[in-house]
Structures are given as C-alpha cells and as structure tokens.
Design a protein around this nucleic acid. Structure first.
Lengths: 152, 152
DNA sequence: CATAACTGAGTTGTGCGCAATTTAATTTGG
DNA sequence: CCAAATTAAATTGCGCACAACTCAGTTATG
C-alpha cells in the first residue's frame, strides 16, 4: 500500500485543473489585449456587443454570467475609453442599453486574429477544441443546475 | 450562407467556456467552504499543506501558480484564523515557512467529502473526470510553454 | 388609484490575481 | 573580503467577482 494523505490531494482535483487552465489562458490573452487597451473581461463584453449591438446590462449579465456589481464599473471604464455608450431605455427607465461607439466597432478588426493565436497555443486540433468546449459547457450547465437545486 | 459576424463569437470561444466553468465550480464550492470559514483559494492553500506540511511561500506559489502578491495577504488571513503559522527559516531568512496549526490540520477531516460532492455535480463519471483533468493539464502546460516562449 | 411586490442598475465592502516596486538576505565574482 | 547580482517576501495599485444593500422605475392587486 502506498502512503495516502488522509484528505483530498491538490493535483487530483479537476477544480484546480480548471482554475489553473483558466488563469493560464487569461494570462496568454493579457499581452495581446494590452495592445488593444483591454482587460480580458472587457474583451468578453465587446465580443458580446460585436455579435449584437444594443444589449442591456441584464443581457450582458446573462451572456457572461456576471452581475451588475461587476458589470456596472466595468462598463463605466469602457465608456470612459469611448468604446461603448450607455443610456437608459426610454420605454423602461430601469434598463440601461449598452451600444458600441464607432471606436468600439473598429476594435473588432484588431481582435479577429486573437482566437486563432490562442487556439494554437492550447495545443489541441479543431476537433479537440470542439470536444473540450462541449465538455466544459455541459459541466457548467450541470454544476449550475446542481447549484440552483441546493439553496433556499 | 448564414449571416456571419465579422469577428470572433463569444460562445465559440474555448477561453470563455473555461472562464465560465471555472467560476461555476468555484461558486458551487463557496457555500460548502463557507461552513469551514474558507474561500476557494484559501482551500487550495490548505490542500497543498495537508499533503505536505512545511511549505515555503515560494513552494506554494509553484504549486498553485500564484505569486507573493496574492499569497502574502492570503496567508496573513489564514494566520489570523489560526489555521497556519508563518516563520522565517533560520538557515535562510529570505524564506518564510508556512505550517499547519492543529486547528488547520483538524479542518482536513471536514474537507474530505467536498471533492466527491463537487465531482457529482459536474455530471461526469470517473473516466470523464480523469480525461478532462488530463486535457486541462496538457492545455495549461502548452499555454504556459507558449507564454514562456513569447516575451523578453 | 394606491400601495405592495418586483425588477434592473448601481454602490459598498472583501478577497483575490497580477504587474511593478521595494526591502532584506544570500550568493557570486573579482 | 567586498561590491554587484540574485533571490524571496512583502507592499502598492488596479480591475475584477460577488455578496449585500440601496434606489428608482414598473407591474400587480385589492
């Protein structure tokens, strides 16, 4: 019998592998996004807006799984960078519509090469990436369903 | 031909799937760790210490891929909770040895059920978890090698 | 129509992550 | 042996994440 620590082991944990992988990928994006003057979460917000201009803070929160406590200050910074505009909806003054400025729209072209570069660095072929993305999405859905079932 | 946004799409990105999965798993751990009075990164530090007491800050940084800017204040909080002790090494006063207190050691027993619970919530069987962990570790290594090759 | 319930943003406070800098201790080279 | 280079922690500053709370606007109900 091998020695066996009387508890969980760091390197056995899928949760740690996820945590480490996520931070490694973000760290790879960092110098690339620096050239665009963006952080990684800001880049994700712009990804959502490039896909469809005119999203409310609530829409962005649903797409990125982030709440207003994270998004409100982040969007203020993007507004200060003149990449997005924020305005209350006239038909429902509770909602804030976020739209791209011309400057924000222009940034899209500079972002096009990023996913390819990062995909290469991951050391997986197209099929491997597809499979990993599918597995991760199923895992996320499963975990979130489990979470929703737990609390009061 | 379907419409195609002239740029990267959020839901196509493996990087976003990683980011979302990592946060979902951390969020599942949160209420469980609340019962132990720990945050997720604090739990990771204790995982490393349960495996082998007596690690320097540098050792912990290597194991968790975190720098002293993150670890120093985190370890101070663990010390204030009386879960770890910190002391300079007598043979090299630059290094700080982190060791478990009895209270920190006792917490291990309460942490034993956590990985099983979280594994269940992920909706993967043992083989699926093994494969995912292997894929993620290879991805992390590949990305970090790529990063090391880039800068000055 | 009044008021209670709900909804969407924003604010506050805490704890990461990480770059950049500082300080002290050790090692190396001349 | 001493100055320069290296190393290990700690500190500072910024931007997330997220819980808890506030506030204004909207909807539902009696």
């Amino acid at each position: 019998m091998a020695e066996q620590p009387a508890g969980p082991v760091l390197d056995d944990q899928v949760c740690f592998a996820l945590y480490a992988a996520s931070r490694a990928v973000t760290a790879l994006y960092r110098p690339l996004l620096d050239d665009l003057g963006l952080t990684y979460p800001q880049y994700l917000v712009l990804l959502a807006l490039w896909e469809r201009d005119e999203l409310t803070v609530k829409d962005l929160g649903r797409a990125l799984q982030l709440d207003s406590g994270t998004l409100s200050p982040l969007l203020k910074r993007l507004e200060k960078l003149e990449l997005v505009r924020r305005e209350r909806r006239s038909d429902d003054e509770r909602s804030v519509l976020v739209t791209l400025t011309a400057k924000g729209d222009d940034l899209r072209a500079k972002a096009v090469p990023l996913p390819g570069l990062v995909g290469d660095a991951m050391g997986l072929d197209g099929a491997g990436l597809d499979e990993l993305r599918t597995t991760l999405r199923e895992l996320t859905d499963s975990v979130n369903a489990y979470r929703a079932a737990l609390p009061q």
